[in-house]
Design a protein around this nucleic acid. Structure first.
Lengths: 127, 127
DNA sequence: CGACAATTTCAATGATTGTTGAATCATGAG
DNA sequence: CTCATGATTCAACAATCATTGAAATTGTCG
């Protein structure tokens, strides 16, 4: 709606692509949530969220590094999470404000649903 | 939890399988919601719901009969909808109370999310 | 520099998905 | 009984998915 064109830098773009929150579609969000490992990542983030302090490497109980990377990308491309690189480490966080503005109330009930269910795996993220 | 065993009639079971709501997993629900046609069926049902009065044949604007049948099955197997056969016609409805008991608040925000988004197709179900 | 650690990428795999069109199966009408 | 109708099933297909393990990438530290 605002005139600001994306103006994406292609070199940086190759990795760590984050969609504009306006471009995210409901069906894509739900598809991204349709996997137990990804739900596990989400609730673990939600239950830790000392915002932006969750290292990607803290999720190794859930899957192998390469598979985790795959799932991180799915969540990121669905507009649910943000990945920030800092040195050799990556931090993962929920795009809370943006996402809540785009889909009010949705994330809360999704997280609550996942949190309540024992079929969703969890990771204790150190504070 | 309650002692009442399912006691399912196998002849009727072959088609129209509905899972026990307790057996439905969050990831399966979200996977079922991860498709625009299925979201369209859901919001159309939610916006009509003169409960149990929605014929399957009323959704033909969304897809071909055979594809609709496929999507109906997905929603049904995810515990979201109920399909009732009456003569040569089938009626479709949302498993509201059960689902809300199993996942409180979830369906409301899912439907609201889908309703608000123009990417989700809709069908006007005659009252 | 060179070894190391944290992640991502790549190639390969089998499984599942969404879609199509033809065939099938009931049921109710004539 | 036969025929049309509403809906599901089946076979086929390309596309995408989740998963694996090996290789490449990037930054840190000695």
């Amino acid at each position: 709606m605002s005139g600001a064109a994306p103006a994406i830098k292609p070199e940086v773009m190759k990795q760590l692509f984050h969609p504009e929150i306006e471009d995210v579609l409901p069906a894509d969000v739900f598809a991204a949530l349709g996997d137990p490992i990804r739900l596990g990542i989400l609730v673990s983030l939600a239950d830790c969220d000392e915002v932006d302090k969750a290292r990607c490497g803290a999720f190794t109980e859930l899957a192998s590094p390469s598979l985790l990377s795959y799932h991180f990308a799915k969540l990121r491309e669905a507009g649910i999470t943000r990945s920030r690189a800092e040195g050799t480490v990556r931090f993962l966080s929920i795009r809370r404000e943006e996402f809540d503005r785009r889909f009010p109330g949705l994330l809360d009930s999704v997280i609550e649903t996942a949190r309540r269910d024992p079929s969703v795996p969890r990771v204790k993220l150190d504070v």
